[in-house]
Structures are given as C-alpha cells and as structure tokens.
Design a protein around this nucleic acid. Structure first.
Lengths: 106, 106
DNA sequence: ACTTACCGTAAGTCATGACTTACCTAGATG
DNA sequence: CATCTAGGTAAGTCATGACTTACGGTAAGT
C-alpha cells in the first residue's frame, strides 16, 4: 500500500520539479537545489518525503548522497491507476447499456 | 496539463474513498456521503475538487446529481506516469552500465 | 401551494505542511 | 589537525485546505 504515500508525495509541485530533474539520471542534493528558488534544507525535506514514499533511492557516495528515481515506486502507482482505469471503463460501459435499455423502454 | 490537478485531487484520503465508492458505478451525493464520517457538504466540496480535476463527471438527474469516474481524467494520469516510468527505467539502466564500467576500471 | 428531499455555496475554525534560519555531523583537502 | 564542502535535523512561522454550521435554491410529493 505504498502507493498511497506516493500520490501524496507527487501532489506537491516542488516535488514534481525535483522528480523531473532526476529523470535524466541520479543527482546529489546540491545539484538538485541549484537553480531552484527554495533553500537547500527545503529540498532535503522534499527528498525525504519522496524517498519515504518509495519514489526515490539514496546511495551515499563519499561526501555526497545521490538521489535517483525508484522504478518500483512509480510502478506501484501505475498499477493502482490501472485498476482504477479498468473499473472506470467497466462502470462507464455498464451505465451506457443501462441508459440504452431505459431508452428502449420509452 | 490537467493531470497536475488530478494528482493533487487524489492525494486526499477522503477523496480516494469517494473514488472507490464510484468504482462500481455512478452515485448521487447522498449515497456517497452515507456511511462516511464527514458531513454531506464536505463531500460536496470534495466532489467539486474531483470534477474540477477532470476525474469525475456530473449528470443532473431530476432532483439529484449523479457523479461518475471520468476515464479520460484517469488516463491523463496514467500517461504522465508512463513517461515517468520510461525515464526512470532508462536512467536506471544508464546508471547500471556506468557502474559496471567503473568497476572494470578498478 | 406547502412541505420535504437533495444538493451546492458562504463564512469561519483549526490542523497540516511547506518554508525559513540556525545548528550539527561526516567525508574531502590543505 | 584545521578547514571546507556536502547535507541532514530542529524549531518556529505562515499559508493552505479540510472540516463545520448556516443558508439558499430547485425538483418531487401531498
């Protein structure tokens, strides 16, 4: 049930910016914060939330810490949305056929 | 870019409960609020957020208003996560090969 | 027509969380 | 060993948003 935290984590625009910066590959905290209009500690806190949600992995590299997108975390979210998608389509189709039946009864 | 609001909308646990109640088909507001531990107006406000985000459709039916999951809204989110997934996998593979090259140099 | 469901909106309260600055620890470097 | 860089943590501030009650408006039933 880790996808619950993943959705909440992705809800913040700043955190989506961070995720976007990591799309091309792992980065240390400083590089992520560079050019963003919030302080480095704020970025650190966001990174904490994202990794707690299973969306990022951390690998200490000497002095620094490299953050990278965790494919499994993203996949958990995708699976949740897939079931939602399936149910939505099924409900949609069912409502459509019931509507057609109604009209026939007129 | 409607998926941005969709993520924020799904971030709230109460709204996910509402979505889950609609998985089996459209429901009026009263039926959704029934059994939930918040007031009906609160449910109304959540429904507003969800439909603004493109996740729900509303169809007035005489006295009531039927809310249903909008497949297109869910799909927008799925597409966003798909691109994220692709980038994450690519970055992961790239990091792995670079790591292997590093080890070879030792 | 009067009343009774059904539902959205307004205004106000209160908690959550996204920032800030200040501080501290752990590796790299001279 | 001294210092500098990289980065996590603590405490406090402030805005956002999730509730509440109160109210208004429209369709159905009598």
């Amino acid at each position: 049930m880790t996808y619950l935290d993943a959705i909440a984590a992705l809800a913040d625009p700043t955190r989506r910016v961070i995720i976007d910066r990591l799309r091309s590959g792992p980065l240390p905290v400083g590089a992520i914060a560079k050019g963003m209009d919030i302080s480095r500690p704020a970025v650190s806190q966001h990174l904490r939330v994202l990794s707690d949600a299973g969306l990022l992995t951390v690998t200490p590299e000497g002095n620094r810490r490299l953050y990278a997108i965790a494919p499994e975390g993203v996949d958990a979210l995708r699976r949740y949305l897939d079931t939602l998608w399936d149910d939505a389509l099924a409900a949609f189709a069912r409502a459509a056929t019931e509507k057609a039946k109604e009209n026939k009864d007129d």
